[in-house]
Amino acid sequence: MTIATPLLSVADLAVTVPGPSGPWTAVAGIDLALARGETLGLIGESGSGKTLTGLALLGLLPSGARVTARRLTFDGQDLRGGEPVLAPLRGRRLGMIVQDPVGAFNPAKRIGWHMRAVLRRRGDRRPDAAACWLSAVGVRAAERVLAAYPHQLSGGMLQRVLIAMVGALEPDLIVADEPTTNLDAVVARQILDLIREQQNRTGCAVLFVTHDLAAARHLCDRVAVMVAGTIVEIGPASAVLEAPRHPYTRGLIATVRSLAARDPILVEMVGEPGRRETGGCPFLSRCPHADPLCRSDPPGLSALRPDHFLRCHHPDV
């Protein structure tokens, strides 16, 4: 994970959120580096902390949540400075694509109003600029879309508009949080391809937060797998998703392969996604290979190869 001059560099990031029984550390010990033009997938199930991690980088956590990190830099700027540092970056050099595009628009304003707001920020005053950016994401009837209210467009079309808006900002880093989860498979592919085209055009880095393994394999250079608030495996997408080493990743891939192989009874993973426990391995309660060592000592992230890291006491079981 040593990138010469990373765009984004994160060391020992933790997020603490308020809970019914006091503050609770939902994410801990996150180390990440992201190079310009690179796509890193952040894979995990619900409650694994992948969305919190993405939001923490942009300073968009819900109120009451607290971020700590040993290092949190974006292009040399220390993001630990909070809003004074982040506010000028967001919407200019840091962009975001959200899961629910409907919620990203003001329902009382037409699409054109939203596009113009973004273009003003960029200083682009060409009369046909909004239509240009929409046609860049494959919207054919741009004028009709610009005149529409958000509720008049499909989820896929709104997601396109959102990508056009992010594209117009030409940010250096885009955090895409489950951008295809609410879409049909066919539309999802189109959206992923648009994100990639955007990246090829501007050379931006993308942090792609998802639970969709196929989408991650399709889009990402590297992936990080999160379990209970911690990265348990990180490496090239091909290595992690085709020859996984962590028991969680292996179990996940086995269930997906089982469905594709038309097994009469599907291979199941044991247990349910759980919360972060203190002490021990984050995957302890669901792991078929857990032993006393896993209960007493949380495993550290160790290198299998120079670019493939694993958090497990039993990498060869």
Partner: peptide
């Protein structure tokens, strides 16, 4: 549902169908 849980529920639905004889309209993409 999470990918890790989907297979559990699909297996369960199939078992329910075999054990109770309940018919199913399974809407999916």
């Amino acid at each position: 549902l999470d990918v890790s849980v989907r297979a559990q529920i699909l297996n369960l639905v199939r078992r329910m169908n075999a054990e109770t004889g309940v018919g199913l309209l399974f809407i999916t993409h």
